[in-house]
Amino acid sequence: MEVFYWCTDQVITQRVLAAKSVAHAKGGCVLTAYAKLLIPPIMVLPGLCARVLYPEVRENSNLAFPTIVSNVLPHGLLGLMVAAMLAALMSSLASTYNSTSAIISYEFYKRLRPRSTDRSLVIVGRVSIVLLTIVGILWIPVISKSGDGLYLYIQSIISYVAPPIAVVYLGGILWKGATPRAATVTLFSGGLIGLIRFVVESVFKIMENPPENAFLSIIVYSNFLYFAFFSTCLSVLLLTICSLFTPAPSQAKIDAIFAHAAKTADLMSYAVVPKQVEDSSDADSLDDTASMGSDQGVDHLQLVERDNDGTKCFGNNAQKTILNTFASLQMGLSFSAFWHFR
C-alpha cells in the first residue's frame, strides 16, 4: 500500500516535480525516507505512555496524543508543539486541496471544455475546494462512528484504493508485457470493488442493526488488510490475463515516451543563472542567483549545469532547521512521557 502513496499519490508527486532539479528531487526523497524511520517510535511511544498514565484515553484513542501533550509538556514547549501540529496540518491540507482541485480542473473540466480559459479553471478549482471542504465536514459523524480510531480509518480507506494502483504501477515498471487496456481494466475493476466495500461498510456502520451473514463477514466485515490482499491478488490476475489478450503498444511509441522523459530529466539538471556566476568558486551562489534570472535579461543568462554529487540535494539550512526542530519536539515528547511514566 505504501507504493501507492509514495510513488503515485498526487500529493507526493507534485512536490517531487516541483524540485529545482533531478538531484534535488532524489535528495528530497532520500531525506524523507530517513525521516520516515522516526515515525514508528514517534507514534507508538506516546500512545503507549498515554494508555498507562491516563486510562480514560483507552475508550477513545484519538484523545491519547492531545491528552499527553497537554499534561506532560511545559507551557513553552506546549505552545510550540501546537504550532508545529497546526503547521503540519495546514501543509497537508494545502497539498491535498491543491492536487485534488488540479485533477478536477484539468482531468475533468478541461476535457469536457477544451477551450476553457485559465480564469475558468481557477474558478473551478476554488469551487471544488469549497465543496470538498463541506463534504469533509459532513463526513465527520461517519468517521466518529467507525469505532477504530482515526488512524485505522485512514489506513482502511487507503487499503481499498491502493492495491490496483500499486499493481499497475509496478506491472508497468517490471513487466514489458503489460498493456494500456489491461491497466485500464485493472484500475477500474479494483477501484470499483474498493468503492463498493467502502460504501457498504460506511452504510452498515451508520445503521443501528446491520445485517450479518457469512458472505458479509468475508466481504464487508473482514479486516481491511485481508481485503487489501484479496484486491491485490485480483488486480494481478486481471492485469496478467488482460495483457495476454490485448495488443501491446508499438515499440516506437514506448521509445518516444522514454525519450521525452529523458529529455525532461536532462533539462531539469540545468539552472538558468547570470553569466557572471559561471566562474564563481562558491557553488551555493548558484541557488542564490538563480532567482535573478527574470531581472537580468535573456542576453545575460546562460544554462549552467547543477552539481549532481548529492551535496546540494537536501535543501537549505532553514528547511533542515525546521525539520530537525519538529523531529526533536516529537522525540522530546516521547521521552518526557516515558520519563514521567518511569
Rank of each mutant, 00 (worst) to 15 (best):
E208L: 11
V3N: 06
Q276M: 07
V82A: 10
S105Y: 02
D255A: 10
A87L: 12
L174P: 02
L73I: 07
R342A: 10
I173A: 09
L77N: 03
G172I: 03
I196Q: 09
I134A: 15
L192W: 07
F198Y: 15
F229S: 07
T13M: 13
R197W: 02
A265T: 06
N209W: 08
M292K: 10
T179Y: 01
A166N: 05
S334A: 15
L45A: 02
F335P: 03
P211K: 02
Q10I: 04
P46A: 00
L17I: 04
Q330G: 05
V200D: 09
S144Q: 14
L187P: 04
L112V: 07
S328L: 15
D255C: 03
A83K: 02
L132N: 11
I154Q: 06
G297H: 14
V16I: 11
S120R: 11
S243N: 08
P249S: 11
V82M: 07
C7L: 13
V72N: 00
I193Q: 06
V220I: 15
V236T: 08
A265V: 05
L329M: 11
A252Q: 10
S156V: 00
P55A: 13
A19F: 01
S91K: 07
V142A: 14
I12Q: 05
A261K: 01
V185C: 03
N308P: 05
H24E: 10
V161Y: 03
G194A: 08
K320E: 13
F341N: 00
T246Q: 07
F229N: 06
D295K: 14
C242T: 08
R126F: 12
F230M: 05
I219D: 04
G136N: 11
E201I: 03
F258T: 07
R306Y: 09
I157P: 02
A83D: 03
V44A: 05
T289Y: 15
P249W: 12
L53W: 09
A183R: 00
A35L: 12
S281A: 10
S328Y: 14
S291R: 15
V220M: 04
S92H: 11
T96G: 15
Q330D: 06
G194Y: 01
G293Y: 05
A183V: 02
Y160M: 11
Y34K: 04
I241R: 06
S291P: 08
P210A: 09
L238G: 00
L286V: 15
L237T: 13
V277D: 09
I154F: 13
L78T: 00
K36V: 04
Y109V: 06
M81S: 04
S291M: 15
L239M: 09
Q14F: 11
S105P: 03
G297V: 13
T32R: 00
F198K: 08
R126H: 12
L150K: 04
T184S: 10
V185W: 00
T186V: 10
W339V: 09
R113P: 03
D279P: 02
R181V: 12
P163M: 10
